[in-house]
Design a protein around this nucleic acid. Structure first.
Lengths: 267, 267
DNA sequence: CATTATCTGTTCGGTATCACACATTATCCT
DNA sequence: AGGATAATGTGTGATACCGAACAGATAATG
């Protein structure tokens, strides 16, 4: 037996009404996501929709000259593979696992079968997509106007929000590539945060000591996006936290989450 | 000379199969769009979906300190009001008419009635939304990595693509606010372009003299987005002619189809 | 333990952009 | 026509970030 999180630990899956969830559930396969895994490349067809439970995936754009920038970060509040239901089939970015963990995935045809019933799943995912859009747009604004230090704060907060932990595993080099800045810039900014007692870092391990301190330094972009997620996906506050022991993916005891069986779509 | 364009001059409406178009058509009201008009503010409910025929609308994000940045530009290839069918109802940005002209608009309930038939309109608009997402993401990347000069080229090309004309009406100050940079920066960059014989500008009037010259200077972002639009929204079913009374209008400049960005580089 | 690889700290010069101030010119208005 | 307004041009210094090179420190490995 391996300790694998429940699908319901993904907030989108958790927000589905039980009838829809139970139709989907048999087709959800757990997938172990390792740091560095690539879910899709630019222009490459994706065959699954992924629902992270405790991993983090970066949406990265690479440029010809080798530069790159992250435009979104996706954890258990969301899903990877929106292009499948948006209709494009591929995207111009790449999806890179940035923090190890698990996700549940479902094959496109099975997923689309449910999506095309045009019920809660559709409404939920479109709302989620709009939240993702807000995140990407705000990233654009932030890239233009805010300092590396502020963006580092934003990035750290986004990560700990999704990990539900105050400890991160990532090197300064990695952060730099995500933000699209130099590694030295991160060294300097992170040094200041450490000196201020807000974080503690050590060779790829970052511990956030003072969350509110980070929030005091971060630019408005962080809260704009967070508020928009909360507005669009109010159920994302529902933390059905505890893992369940789960062996294999066949017969999973359908966890009823009382009080959350409503659709998020209150259009 | 002051003919009101046909709704079919909007490429989304034009791409609808005639049965759907005819259901929609009675509800389409022409709207005159003047420069500076605001279609919605952040958090403000929108009651129409707008389909531009010959105007340009900017999707702008403002910040507390007064700064702003454009994350997308929308012309007759698209629509304003995706939040209505995405389900959010409001957005975090504002929509500002940036070049005067006409649009057809339709009230939300009537629009949603058609959208909820889950037919061509839904699929078309979701694909369009994905293209819009690509534009916003690439804007984020561009803001991070490219110079003011390159971004100016991108912005000019985006505009003339949507105006189907090589003459623009916008001041350097306006462009600066769109790109989120200083006006002096635009003065300098535009001066270089003029000196190179690529454009000619004069107190709010810009004429593009050498389109391919601009394309040679622009960063890759422009073509990444353009290719993605062409891929997702081929000028399809009702290409020029049939239902369009104003077939004399030029289409977007020649479509390019080089591959999507190579996947070399950091991460 | 020694070696290697990885991660972090620091420096230095170069450059793009910024912030501000002000001059100049074209267009608009009465 | 003449004055007001809007748009553009220029200059000066400050600063944030870049590019590259290198040094020290810690973990990983054999």
């Amino acid at each position: 037996m391996i300790n694998i999180p429940s699908p319901r630990q993904n907030q989108l899956l958790n927000a589905l009404p039980s009838t829809e969830y139970e139709r989907l559930q048999p087709h959800l396969e757990p997938a172990q996501m390792s740091c560095g895994d690539i879910l899709y490349e630019p222009g490459e067809k994706l065959h699954f929709v992924y629902f992270p439970t405790d991993c983090i995936v970066s949406q990265l754009h690479a440029m010809k000259d080798g530069g790159s920038s992250e435009t979104a970060i996706i954890g258990n509040e969301g899903a990877i593979g929106i292009t499948l239901f948006m209709g494009g089939g591929t995207m111009t970015n790449r999806a890179l696992v940035q923090s190890a963990g698990y996700a549940y995935r479902i094959r496109q045809p099975l997923f689309m079968q449910e999506f095309n019933r045009h019920d809660a799943l559709l409404h939920l995912l479109l709302r989620y997509t709009q939240a993702l859009i807000a995140q990407m747009a705000q990233t654009a604004v932030c890239n233009r106007h805010h300092s590396v230090g502020q963006q580092l704060c934003r990035r750290l907060l986004l990560s700990i929000d999704r990990l539900h932990s105050n400890e991160l595993t990532m090197t300064q080099e990695l952060i730099a590539n995500m933000l699209g800045v130099r590694r030295e810039g991160i060294t300097e900014a992170a040094g200041k945060l450490q000196q201020a007692g807000l974080i503690n870092y050590n060779r790829g391990h970052i511990k956030v000591l003072d969350r509110s301190g980070l929030e005091a330094r971060v630019c408005e972009c962080y809260h704009v996006v967070k508020d928009e997620f909360d507005r669009l996906l109010p159920l994302s506050y529902h933390d059905s936290g505890n893992d369940c022991l789960y062996a294999g993916f066949a017969n999973m005891p359908g966890r009823r989450s009382e009080g959350v069986t409503e659709s998020a779509g209150k259009l």
